[in-house]
Simulated scan of single mutants.
Amino acid sequence: MNKLFGTYKVLAYVVGVLLLVGTICSLFKYLLPEGNALQSFGETMTPLWVAHGWVFIIYVIVAFLLTQKARWTIPEFLLMMIAGLVPGLIFWVERRVADRIAPLLIDA
Score class of each variant (00 low, 15 high):
95 R>S: 14
49 W>L: 07
69 K>R: 11
68 Q>N: 09
80 M>E: 09
101 I>P: 11
57 I>K: 11
101 I>W: 02
79 L>P: 01
87 P>N: 02
58 I>G: 00
29 K>Y: 02
64 F>I: 10
44 T>N: 11
38 L>C: 08
31 L>E: 10
70 A>C: 01
108 A>R: 14
90 I>P: 00
107 D>K: 15
42 G>I: 06
45 M>K: 14
8 Y>F: 14
20 L>V: 09
90 I>F: 04
36 N>F: 09
81 M>Y: 04
104 L>M: 09
78 L>Q: 04
79 L>G: 12
2 N>P: 06
33 P>W: 09
17 V>R: 04
73 T>W: 00
8 Y>D: 01
42 G>T: 04
70 A>V: 02
27 L>V: 15
106 I>E: 12
12 A>P: 02
18 L>A: 11
60 V>N: 01
60 V>R: 05
36 N>P: 03
26 S>H: 13
32 L>Q: 05
41 F>L: 15
105 L>I: 04
90 I>H: 05
38 L>Q: 02
59 Y>M: 12
3 K>R: 14
33 P>C: 12
73 T>S: 15
1 M>C: 10
95 R>E: 01
44 T>C: 07
4 L>G: 05
47 P>V: 10
12 A>T: 01
100 R>G: 13
7 T>W: 10
18 L>I: 11
20 L>S: 14
41 F>K: 11
27 L>F: 12
39 Q>W: 02
25 C>T: 09
85 L>D: 10
77 F>G: 09
76 E>A: 02
63 A>F: 12
67 T>N: 03
5 F>L: 05
37 A>D: 06
76 E>V: 12
48 L>K: 03
6 G>M: 15
77 F>P: 01
89 L>F: 08
32 L>R: 00
69 K>F: 01
67 T>H: 12
56 F>K: 03
60 V>P: 03
80 M>T: 05
49 W>T: 06
75 P>W: 01
15 V>M: 03
9 K>T: 07
12 A>V: 07
3 K>S: 13
40 S>Y: 07
71 R>N: 13
24 I>E: 02
87 P>S: 05
46 T>F: 09
42 G>A: 13
33 P>S: 13
8 Y>L: 04
25 C>Q: 10
57 I>D: 01
26 S>N: 14
7 T>V: 13
7 T>E: 04
29 K>R: 13
80 M>N: 11
47 P>S: 06
51 A>M: 11
21 V>M: 07
21 V>G: 02
104 L>A: 12
86 V>R: 00
14 V>H: 04
87 P>I: 02
61 I>T: 06
96 R>C: 00
102 A>P: 06
76 E>K: 15
1 M>H: 14
71 R>E: 10
106 I>Q: 05
68 Q>K: 14
14 V>K: 02
19 L>I: 12
57 I>Q: 09
103 P>F: 10
16 G>F: 11
96 R>D: 02
25 C>I: 00
49 W>V: 08
49 W>C: 10
27 L>D: 01
32 L>E: 01
85 L>K: 00
34 E>A: 15
